[in-house]
């Protein structure tokens, strides 16, 4: 049952840059064909995804090495990272909620809650 996940892993190795995203699409397609989630895969996904943030820790530690480069443009970088990111999330969420909610999807959203 873990084969589907394993297969996704090995496909990542053969594909160029957005390999992980391609593997996601492949696995999703696979699940659509299966029409259900194998129990072991579901358990694996729940466990791995609950640790999702862990996989970014080494990259975060790597940021320290670029401190001299960051310092050169610090005000602009801070404005872009903090202002830009918060603005983007707020704007995207508002637009999605306002524009993306014709009446017939309202019910679907409420069912999903």
């Amino acid at each position: 049952m873990l084969l589907a996940a394993a297969e996704a892993i090995c496909r990542i190795g053969h594909l160029p840059i957005p390999g992980a995203v391609v593997a996601l699409v492949l696995l999703y397609g696979n699940l659509l064909l299966l029409r259900r989630i194998p129990e072991a895969l579901g358990a694996l996904a729940d466990r791995v995804l609950s640790l999702f943030g862990l996989f970014f820790v080494p990259a975060g530690v790597g940021v320290v090495a670029y401190w001299p480069l960051l310092r050169a443009d610090l005000p602009g970088i801070l404005a872009a990272l903090v202002g830009g990111t918060i603005t983007t999330i707020a704007v995207t969420a508002v637009v999605a909620e306002r524009l993306g909610r014709p009446k017939h999807t309202q019910e679907a959203a409420d069912v999903g809650r």
Binding site: A5, A8, I9, L24, L27, L31, I37, A45, L49, A59
Partner: peptide
């Protein structure tokens, strides 16, 4: 850990 990121992203197919 960074290596595991790929499979973890692929596993997002499950909640999707």
């Amino acid at each position: 850990l960074p290596f595991m990121l790929g499979p973890a992203v692929a596993l997002l197919a499950v909640p999707l």
